[in-house]
Amino acid sequence: MQLGRTKFLARYGYGKSRDFLVRDPKTGTDCDSKAIAGVAYGKQFPDQGPLTADGFSGGEATVMSALTRLGFAIIRIGEDWSEAEVAATVTDYFEMLRAEAAGLPFSKSEHNQALRRQLNGRSKSSVELKHQNISAVLDALGLPYINGYKPRGNSQLLLPKSVQAYVLEHQQLVGTIVDALEEVKLPGDKTYLAALVEPPTREALVRAPVTMRNRMPRKFDYAARDEANRSLGRAGEQWVIEFEQQRLTDLGRAELFQRLDWVSDTQGDGVGFDILSFEDDALHRFIELKTTNGGLGSSFLVSHNELAFSKEAGEQFYLYRVCQFRDGSRLFTLGGDLAQHVHLKPIDYRASFR
């Protein structure tokens, strides 16, 4: 299998298995069952050559039986995971998340390999997908997730329940993770413009099953804690001001930086933006800043005032999202009406008697 899966299948005329994969007990590599059996037949009987995809008698059942006798582990594609498998995967995920929050090195590949020994013949890619599913659940709960596992929804119903149960049972651990991610540490990367990245795209909104969202401890709401962390917010604003200085200098308009106004500092919150910068002598750039130590896809809070101002200011409004702040910072921008870029969900109400 040194060719890789795609080239191996193409060379011998096989398609990808739809129902089963097998795992080599020596290497841990996951392979397409019929292709492995057919090519192995050609190695054993070189005068006859490999079997073609339709050259089997007895179909997949015969292939799987033979490969099982040879010591291969059988992987059933698409089969729902058991409660024990899901619990083990959730526990492994939080071990990695704890290490990431503490700034400790860890290997996703090694975790994946070790976890698969506890599972019922799951493939490397299926474990990675499950980890991405966990990220999606955590993001929906307002909790941080591992940067390397982009949230992907459509998980089996057992997974959200298992994640939520884990959070409620291990509140001290989850609290430690969230506390560690609130640490304010100035990034070492001062290249500024090199920190620019493309913003995440707004994905199609899929209505998830009702969860225990309202029962989760409020102290774990990561987006809310980001918003309330004034030290992190202020450090992010200072970083963006230096970013603006570099941007204007590179545009040949360094003199405009002298007119920049740190509005949230001079006037306070509630204006609808944090920093007044410029495109040219006449055109303003109204910057609202959201800073987090979390990943690019982390959710953030937007006030009614900020949303309204983004519509009023139009092309002159920019939301600057500074992510992974303590790890060197990454920045993306969203211009104009925020409702065109993100999904918005109301989460609070003002109560009155008239």
Rank of each mutant, 00 (worst) to 15 (best):
M1L: 03
L3P: 05
R11A: 15
Y14P: 06
G15R: 07
R23N: 03
D24C: 15
T27G: 01
T29F: 04
D30H: 07
D32A: 04
I36S: 00
V39M: 03
V39K: 03
A40I: 07
D54P: 08
S57D: 14
S65D: 12
I75N: 10
G78P: 00
G78Q: 02
S82C: 00
F94K: 14
R98D: 14
E100D: 14
L104D: 12
P105D: 10
Q113N: 13
R116Y: 10
Q118E: 12
S123D: 05
V127D: 08
Q132W: 02
N133M: 08
V137Y: 05
L138H: 03
L143G: 07
G148M: 10
G153H: 10
G153W: 09
S155E: 15
L157H: 11
P160T: 10
V163G: 07
L168D: 06
Q172H: 14
T176G: 15
T176K: 13
V178D: 01
E182P: 06
P187G: 11
G188V: 13
Y192T: 07
L193R: 13
E198F: 09
P199Q: 09
T201W: 09
A204H: 12
F220G: 07
D221V: 04
N229D: 02
S231E: 15
G233H: 02
A235M: 03
E237D: 09
Q238M: 11
I241H: 05
T249W: 00
D250M: 12
L251R: 08
R253L: 12
D261R: 12
S264L: 08
D269R: 04
G270I: 05
F273H: 10
F273Q: 02
D274M: 04
D281N: 09
F286Y: 15
I287Y: 04
L289M: 03
K290N: 01
K290G: 06
L296R: 01
G297Y: 00
F300R: 00
L301H: 05
S303F: 01
N305H: 06
A308W: 06
F309I: 13
F309C: 06
F309E: 08
F309D: 05
E312N: 11
A313Y: 09
Q316D: 13
T333Q: 14
L334K: 03
G335H: 12
D337N: 15
H341M: 07
V342E: 01
V342H: 04
Y349D: 05
A351E: 02
